[in-house]
Design a protein around this nucleic acid. Sequence first.
DNA 1: ATCGGGACCTGCTTGC
DNA 2: TGCAAGCAGGTCCCGA
Length: 269
Amino acid sequence: MPELPEVETTRRGILGHVQNRKIVKIEVRQANLRWKIDPKLADRLAGLTIDGVDRRGKYLLFRLSPLTLMVHLGMSGSLRIVDQGTVPGKHDHVDIHLEESKILRYHDPRRFGSVLLLEADRHPLLEHLGPEPLSEDFNAEYLYARSRKCKRPIKPYIMDGGIVVGVGNIYAAEALFLSAIRPGIASGRLSLSRYQNLVSSIKDVLTKAIEKGGTTLRDFVREDGQPGYFKQELFVYGRGGEPCIKCGSVLKEIRQAQRSTVYCAVCQK
DNA sequence: ATCGGGACCTGCTTGC
DNA sequence: TGCAAGCAGGTCCCGA
């Protein structure tokens, strides 16, 4: 489910419910996620107060001075706020009980997500991440300079978290359509001005998706259980074989690095 | 140094 | 109708 807009939607949705609230207790029903949940995690966090929730790429960082709880939603994860007594479902793996009878509930059918305890503000998974796409550090000059001599196709290139964080399969395809760039072109062959288009398309599509509460394809839900509404605004993702919204020709579907890619061979060069 | 591929999982859709 | 294959928002890690 979650790319940056969905993670950011989740962060904004839960913030008001968890900030300055004390963790009463934690229940772990399934510890085998992408990485096994530390058996000591529940004891370490009980009694601490959540000072705030930050985001780095697709990671949510719960600040519990002096510890940090790092949550990744993987492919199918979500966080919801539910009332005490709400019966957990099959894939509700972790409950974080808060003051005032609320529970922050982690749900993840495929279990590709993770719930990790950080002793400090650092973690190996955060060490080599690229810039935030909505920050000024992410700009055309950076991408252009970094991609010289790189033969890797542009779509997997912008989906690489070491290059820029937060851009997943949906928004990579959308941004390339919006900037009229073919997904298979080698990143090292794109000009600076094409990178200017691409960067502004990425920022644009992510910003608009956040405004709509993210994209719900099947199971993404916001903290209150509502879906996101950006799906209606997708130009190419999930539309292989259908007509291009701009020119009407049939959209092509290919595979790149084991991910499906849809594009318009007429509009994107 | 870069890659492509496999791995980790469950659930839903599709086709025989 | 049943069953197996294929595919799905991510990304680490290995070997070529």
